[in-house]
Design a protein around this nucleic acid. Sequence first.
DNA 1: TTGAAAGCGCTAACAA
DNA 2: TTGTTAGCGCTTTCAA
Lengths: 333, 333
Amino acid sequence: MRDVAARAGVSLKTVSRVINREPGVSTALIQRVDAAAAELDFRPNLGARSLRRSDGRTATIGLVLQDLANPYSASLHRAIEDIARARGVAVLSGSVDETAARERELVTAFSARRVDGLVIMPTGTDQSYLLLERRAGVAMVFVDRPPVGIEADVVLADNRSGARGGVAHLIAHGHRDIAFLGDLSSIATEEERHRGYCDAMAEAGLPVRADLVAKDLDTMDGAQTATHRMLELDHPPTAIFGGQNLITIGALRALRAARLQQQVALVGFDDFQLADLMQPAITVVAQDLQQIGHLAAETLFTRVDGDESPYTTAVTPTRLTPRGSGEIRAPDR
Amino acid sequence: MRDVAARAGVSLKTVSRVINREPGVSTALIQRVDAAAAELDFRPNLGARSLRRSDGRTATIGLVLQDLANPYSASLHRAIEDIARARGVAVLSGSVDETAARERELVTAFSARRVDGLVIMPTGTDQSYLLLERRAGVAMVFVDRPPVGIEADVVLADNRSGARGGVAHLIAHGHRDIAFLGDLSSIATEEERHRGYCDAMAEAGLPVRADLVAKDLDTMDGAQTATHRMLELDHPPTAIFGGQNLITIGALRALRAARLQQQVALVGFDDFQLADLMQPAITVVAQDLQQIGHLAAETLFTRVDGDESPYTTAVTPTRLTPRGSGEIRAPDR
DNA sequence: TTGAAAGCGCTAACAA
DNA sequence: TTGTTAGCGCTTTCAA
C-alpha cells in the first residue's frame, strides 16, 4: 500500500480510503490511486486490516461439521457458503468425526484466525468451553443438534415429529411389528427420532418390542448385522424404520441379502442419492438441508452484525417422500 | 499478550517465546507464563503473527473446488483436510460451479487472506492470472484438470487409459455398438475420456459411429434424453459408456424407463454411492480420490516448504470395478 | 478534501 | 536466559 501511495503521489490514508471506497475523495485521486494499484498488482491484506480495524472483523467464518465428505455435511456446507459468498465472507471448515477433542481443536484453530462467527454441528457432551469465544465476541449458531452447557441460536430439523410421521406411515400400511434402528444414542437427534418412533407406536396403541429396537449402531455394517439378526427372530419385523442415512442403507443391504426387500417395508430418516432408483425405491423422511444451512448462516450474520435479541431455536419441517419401500403392506395375519 | 506479560511479570518477548515453544526459556518462566495465559484465557492471534513473521505464513490454504456439495469435490476436500490437519493448517474452500469468474473471485478472496497455498480444480480456459499469485509467493497445485497458461504441479487421474479400459471391457463382452456420453467438451478430463473411448474402439478395429457419441451433456436430464434418443435409433447401442457420474446415472434412468437395464450394458466413469445396490449393480471406472487429494496436499506443502524442483504431473491410476451392468453380453447377431 | 502520527498483536534483530 | 526496540500493512484519530 505504501508503494501504491508513492506511485500515486498521495498519502497512505488516501490509498486506504480509495481501496475501501470511502466517500470524500476527489475523482481525480481515486483514478490515480486505482491506476497505481493496478500497475503494482496491489493485493490488500485482510489480516492487517482486521488487526487494525476497530471491529476486528476478518470477513471469515468457521464451520465445524461432522465429515466434509458425507453428503449431509457437504450439503449444509454448500448452503452456508452461498449465503457467506453473497456477503464477501470466506469459509473455513473442518471435520469432527464425532470426536469431542477434534471439535475443540477446530474451534481453537478457527478462533486463532479470529473468525467472525462459527457454525457448529456439536459432538461433545459439553459446549460450555465456547462461552470463552462468545466473550471474545465470536458469534455462533448450532445446527443439527442443540449444544449443551451454553445458550445459543440453534437450527434443527423436526426430528421427533418427522420420525413419528414416518413410523405412522408404516402403521397406516398395516404394520405392527416395526423395528427401530438408531445411531449412537449420545447424539441428540437420534434420541429425538427414537422418541418420535415411540410416540407413533403409543398413538396407535402398539407395544414397543425391545427386541425390535437396536441403538448405538455406528456403522452401516452394524445396521446390517442388527437387521439380519432381527429378520431371524421368531417374530421378525414386517417393517423397519432407519434412524439415519447409513443405517437405512445397512438395513437395505440386509433385506437384499435375505431377499426380503419386496416383503419388509422400509422407511429411512434422511434422503440420499439414488434412493429413487432402488428397487423398490426407498421411502424417506427428508430434511431440507438447504433451508437449514441458509437459516443458520443468516442467523449467524445477524449476530455478527450485532443483533442481541434473545436466542432462538428454529425447527425446520421434514418431508415424508413415499417412493415404494414404505408402502409395502404388512402381510395378513 | 501484553496482559499475559504483565501478569507473569515478564517481557512481551518472553511470552512470545513461551507461546511458540522456542527453546531457551527457563522452566520457571515457562510455567509462570503458561499459568498467566490460562488465567487470562489468552488466545493467540495468528493474523498478527503472520503479519510480523518473516515468512508471512498464515497456516491456511485455499481450496477452489467445483461444488462442495458434490461427492467428487467433497471427497477431495476431505482428503486434503486430513493432510492439512496433520500440519496444523486450516482450510478455506469455495465452489466454482464451472464459472470462470467465480474461480477468480475465490482466488482473490483467498489471496487477500494470504493463504500459503492453493489447490485448484480449474474451470476457466486461462489460469495465467495466477502468475501474479505465484510471484507473491503463493504455492499452488491443480487437481483433476490441468491449468492453461501457467506451468505448475498437477495431479490427475488417468482419464484416457481409464476410459479405454472401460470401453475395452465392453468390447470384450461382445459389444460393437458402444455409445459415448460426455460432459462439456471444454473440460479437459472429458476430452481425455473421449479419446480413451476412441482408442479402445480403434484398437479393436471398430468404427466410431457419430450417432452414438453425445457430448456437451451438462445435466443428468441431458444425458437421459440423449440416451433415450439413441435407444430409439434403428441400430441402437448395445452398450453405453458414461463419461461421468451424473451422466451415467442419467443413462441409467433412460435404460430403466425403457426397461432395458438388463439388456444394454453400462459402464460409467467415476464411482458413486449405492452403485453396488442397483439392479444390475453398476460397473464403473473409479478414481482414487483419497490418493489424489493426499498427493495434491502433499505436493502443495512441499512447495510451501520451499521446494523449487521442476513441476510435476502426477497421474493416478483408475480401477475398473465390475459389478454386473458392464458384463451384460452383446446379443448375438 | 487530504495527510501525519499512532498503534492493532505479534515477532525479528539485536542488546544486555 | 531475558529484555528492548522497531515495524509487518493497515486503519484510527486528529489536525490541516
